[in-house]
Design a protein around this nucleic acid. Sequence first.
DNA 1: ACGCATAATATGTCTATACATTATTTCGAA
DNA 2: TTCGAAATAATGTATAGACATATTATGCGT
Lengths: 232, 232
Amino acid sequence: MALHDRIRTEIEGQILSGALKPGDKVPSEHELMAHYGCSRMTVSKALTALSGAGLLQRRKRAGTVVAPRPTETMVLDVPDLAVEIARRGQAYRFRLIAREVRKARPEDALDDGLARAGPLLFVRGVHCADDVPIAHEARYISLAAVPEIVEADFTRESPGSWLLRHIPWTEAENRIGAVGADAAWAPLLNLEPGAACLSIERKTWRGEARITLVRQSFVAGSFELVARFGAA
Amino acid sequence: MALHDRIRTEIEGQILSGALKPGDKVPSEHELMAHYGCSRMTVSKALTALSGAGLLQRRKRAGTVVAPRPTETMVLDVPDLAVEIARRGQAYRFRLIAREVRKARPEDALDDGLARAGPLLFVRGVHCADDVPIAHEARYISLAAVPEIVEADFTRESPGSWLLRHIPWTEAENRIGAVGADAAWAPLLNLEPGAACLSIERKTWRGEARITLVRQSFVAGSFELVARFGAA
DNA sequence: ACGCATAATATGTCTATACATTATTTCGAA
DNA sequence: TTCGAAATAATGTATAGACATATTATGCGT
């Protein structure tokens, strides 16, 4: 292991083990280069990496301290639904229910960024695994941001995959919760209204421009999200 | 902005905009130092950062290429429930329902790591905001890993907060899904059995040793998880 | 043609140094 | 005493060079 990796690991270990608590001062670069007998660049690399990972906070002149609440963030895997279903050995299919170009309505409950973006493409459909419905999707796409989407064929490909291939986002936000199945789409998933569903609302941006908002509702037990923290 | 940050941002932009696609070769460090008129350390810093973020893959002699699947991972905020409720201006309270030391039973559906860890402390309780029940929690704690927990008082503090203060974990995994309220605890949350709940199952490790497994079920709408990707 | 040794290439690590930037501390003048 | 300027201590950025290491390309001998 490289020396800067060893330094990084040792300090990380002291933080994770609790030997160094949030707010504690970490030795300065000069003290560490004396301790390890190496140059300043090397210890700096280790400390900068830990700072980037959110474990340390560094301020000029004041020094380096352990960041508060070392970790209330985790890395969340957001699998592509088609890929995830294929990985289970099932056949993925997107069933298009509705598709129309229109303005935002109050009952859509859109955020301002998308509501003011002009005309929207509204798409509703169901994700299926081996023709068993797994999730309902309602999506709003800004035509100003993605004019070429009016040509897309969503009977074979989901809007999500199409967007991913054509215009990658630069920023995204997922809100994850639970919701009872709505009477409007519960029958599409063979559910009683009120049945438990995992709800994911995703907004994406490309620079300043809003691209899309999508609300997906997964039948309980059909889909799980996994978030991890720790050693790879 | 620092030069290495500028280089990093420009290449990142080309990847996110699609100008550079997965598998495409990125100019070598020598080409970039000629292009930007700087030293190799500077471009190396930019490329190493992008490699650490998962956008690039670097191999000696072969060069640097854009990583496949421009990162389907996001950063998930996992707020402490007590802090989150306090932030809403409500009073947090943990109501202890049951607490016992016993061996793992088949119906606990524990993973092998915890089931084989010896005697467990089993705790069940309800998280409340302004005395309104928000979530049910069932937790299993390895007494081998945390013997001093038998002294803890969970009538005032939740087991999660206690653990966080006493023995930080080094590794954790969250599984997030939806579940219908179980008849065993639905009344505690003033729910009908089968009502939609957000389900979070968390396992934590300290090095090789399993510490705890907790299953939390949140009343739909009472709690949301947020995951982000992109600029701050 | 084939396999193997060797050269070339690109990244990985590290040093020693220099100057810039930002807080903090110190100290002097009003 | 208090305010403000200057010294100081820490990190931030960057250079130029050196050697290490992994991988691919080349060419030689059979």
